[in-house]
Simulated scan of single mutants.
Amino acid sequence: MERNAELGDFLRTRRARMSPADAGVAPGGGVRRVPGLRREEVAYVAGVSTDYYTRLEQGRHPNVSEAVLDAVARALRLDDDERGHLFDLARPRTTRPRRHRVERVQRVRPEVHQMLDFLNGVSPAFVANHRQDVLAANQLARALITDWDKLPYRERNFARYVLLDPGARELYLNWREVAETVVADLRLEAGRHPDDARLNELIGEAVVKVPEFGSWWDSHRVAQCVHGTQRFQHPVVGEITLHHETLVFPADPGQTVCVYTAEPGSASAQALALLASWSAPENTAAPEPAEADPGAA
């Protein structure tokens, strides 16, 4: 990706969503040719010159300070994810020549596998990395979403499933909402890992194959898939609404666990219990734990 263009597009979309009233400045005279704040208004609120901000938006200020980026983030009212994304795009990258290296295989600790097994009777749960590669999943998660273990290594990816598998549009009643959040997470991680070949391949494939992807990507929305509600039309138990929380592993950088729960006493809780009974290990052969592709680059 061209970092200067990414930075400029991101800043333009962020100021386009704000009005002078949002920023606490008086609207200037004349007709506004574009929606949102003008560059000089962002510069005024951030406490920098218009020329300085213009050069930043055009990617012509490689040594911008943290203080200025903080000021711009406050002026544009960026949330934590957006602020982090701004820093990822604006900070100069290392000038050391890049060498091709084989990515270290990401393994899930035995204790985490035990946790997934413990949750299996009550909560679907899976472990993923920054690309949303599914590294491990309990039986209930595989029964709820898809059986990751039966897929080739490179296809064991939550974002790939949601965006590219036709079955996902039938499974998720709120597919558009789920998909848009997935794209926002991919956009965030692309800023953090611009040289991740596998991530860039996934994004490129989605651009070509998912009609809605282009407009979502061009919105420059960034967000982590940390929590939310997903509604399913499951082929076995019917309609079910679940809340999901994503938790980090301090001892395993880059790995998170997504855990689904149902409202106690609800019809969804009953449906989830039925699904757990239907997918219990004594009723199905237990697959081997999933790992990342040993040949990933």
Rank of each mutant, 00 (worst) to 15 (best):
A251G: 06
V248R: 10
R221S: 03
G228V: 12
T241Y: 12
V237A: 10
V236C: 02
F213Q: 04
E201S: 09
P235H: 07
V259M: 02
R198F: 10
F249W: 08
G214N: 14
Q230S: 07
I240T: 09
S215N: 06
W216H: 03
T256P: 12
P211H: 02
Q255I: 00
T256E: 14
L202A: 07
P250L: 06
W217L: 03
D195C: 01
T246P: 11
Y260V: 06
V210N: 05
T256W: 13
L242Q: 09
P250G: 11
E263W: 13
C258Y: 04
G204T: 05
I240N: 04
V226E: 14
V236I: 10
H234Y: 09
D195K: 05
I203Y: 00
F232M: 02
V259C: 11
V208R: 15
V207F: 10
V237W: 00
N200L: 13
L202T: 05
D195M: 01
Q255F: 04
G238S: 06
W216Y: 10
R221H: 12
Q255G: 07
D252A: 15
A267P: 03
D218Q: 15
A197N: 07
A206Q: 03
V226I: 07
T246C: 08
G254D: 15
R221T: 02
V210D: 06
K209M: 15
F213I: 00
Q255V: 04
D196Y: 13
V222P: 02
G238T: 08
L242D: 05
K209I: 00
N200F: 01
A206C: 14
A197V: 09
A251C: 05
C225F: 08
G265C: 08
P211T: 10
E201N: 12
G228H: 09
A262T: 09
E245V: 02
D195Q: 10
D218V: 05
T241S: 14
F249Y: 11
E201L: 00
V257N: 01
T246Y: 01
V237F: 02
T229E: 08
N200A: 15
I240C: 08
E263N: 06
C225R: 01
V207P: 00
R198G: 15
E245Q: 11
A251L: 12
S266I: 15
F249H: 01
E201P: 09
Q224S: 11
N200Y: 00
L247S: 05
H243R: 14
A262F: 05
P235D: 04
G238H: 07
S215R: 12
E239V: 07
D252P: 03
S266M: 06
P253T: 06
V222D: 08
Q233W: 05
V259Y: 00
S215V: 07
A251N: 04
T229H: 07
W216Q: 08
S219N: 08
H244C: 13
T246V: 12
G238I: 08
P264G: 04
V259K: 03
T246I: 02
G204E: 11
H244S: 08
E205I: 00
E263I: 06
A267D: 11
H227A: 12
W217D: 01
E201R: 14
D196M: 04
D252R: 00
F213D: 03
P250Q: 04
T256V: 14
V208N: 10
A197T: 15
I240Y: 04
P264Q: 02
G204P: 03
